[in-house]
Computed example of a mutant assay.
Amino acid sequence: MSDSSENPTQEWTKLVENMNDAVAESMEQNMKASSAFMESWSDAMEESMPEQGEMAEAMEGYNDAYEVWLDAAEQMFERTSDAAEGEDVAMSEFRDIWLQSANEAFKQVMSTSAYAAANGQLVSAMMDLQEQTDEISEDTLEQLGMPTGSDIEEVGERLVELERRQHRVEKKLDRVIEALE
């Protein structure tokens, strides 16, 4: 059994080590998240190289996002220091710092015209894919002798036209009957 004078020192050392480990781990996770974000952003930008003005704006958005991440790391360090000095710091504060920072960083990048252009190209590609899929479905149904979407639309249009004609004939008949009475 150890004496009581060593025990608080050992506990303090262990607490500081644990906090240092937690800070190091959260910094590592931050760097991984930032790296993954930049990698996916870079991949999106590679597929659609923006114009020079858009590229400058995109880089500015990235720099702003990076500043947000740095501010978050600084806040984490400050709150960790506060905890080491004995202040009661809830673990949820650390989570909230990262969540708020992630939201702000993504907002910085997503508000650029380069991101909008890349997103527009993605939507366009998805619409092209949907159109191709629809054409393949139509061809397959046609080859199987089943009605296609186009066939059903044509039948619907014909029914609407028949209803219009029927109403016109009914009105004429009503006028003829009124005239005869």
Rank of each mutant, 00 (worst) to 15 (best):
P8I: 04
T9M: 09
E11D: 09
T13S: 13
T13Q: 06
V16N: 02
E17R: 01
E17C: 00
E17Y: 00
M19Y: 05
D21Y: 02
V23S: 05
A24R: 10
A24E: 05
A24G: 01
M27W: 04
E28P: 00
E28I: 02
Q29I: 01
N30R: 10
N30L: 14
N30D: 07
M31K: 12
M31C: 08
A36P: 02
A36D: 15
F37V: 13
M38K: 10
E39M: 12
W41G: 15
S42P: 01
S42D: 12
D43I: 15
M45N: 10
M45A: 08
E46K: 14
E46D: 15
S48V: 15
P50W: 07
E51Q: 02
E51K: 10
Q52A: 13
A56P: 00
E57M: 11
A58W: 11
Y62E: 09
Y62R: 12
N63Y: 11
D64W: 05
A65R: 05
V68C: 07
W69R: 09
F77G: 04
D82I: 07
A83L: 03
A84E: 10
G86L: 04
E87C: 01
E87T: 11
E87M: 07
R95W: 02
W98V: 10
W98R: 04
Q100K: 12
N103A: 15
E104R: 07
A105C: 12
K107L: 06
K107H: 12
Q108N: 14
S111Y: 08
A116V: 13
G120K: 08
Q121R: 14
V123G: 07
V123D: 13
V123M: 11
S124W: 04
A125Y: 01
A125M: 08
M127A: 15
T133S: 13
E135G: 06
E138V: 13
D139Q: 05
L144A: 11
G145F: 02
G145Q: 05
G145N: 07
P147W: 00
T148F: 01
S150Q: 08
E157V: 11
E163R: 11
E163L: 10
R165A: 00
D174Y: 07
R175Q: 15
R175F: 07
I177C: 09
E178W: 09
E181S: 15
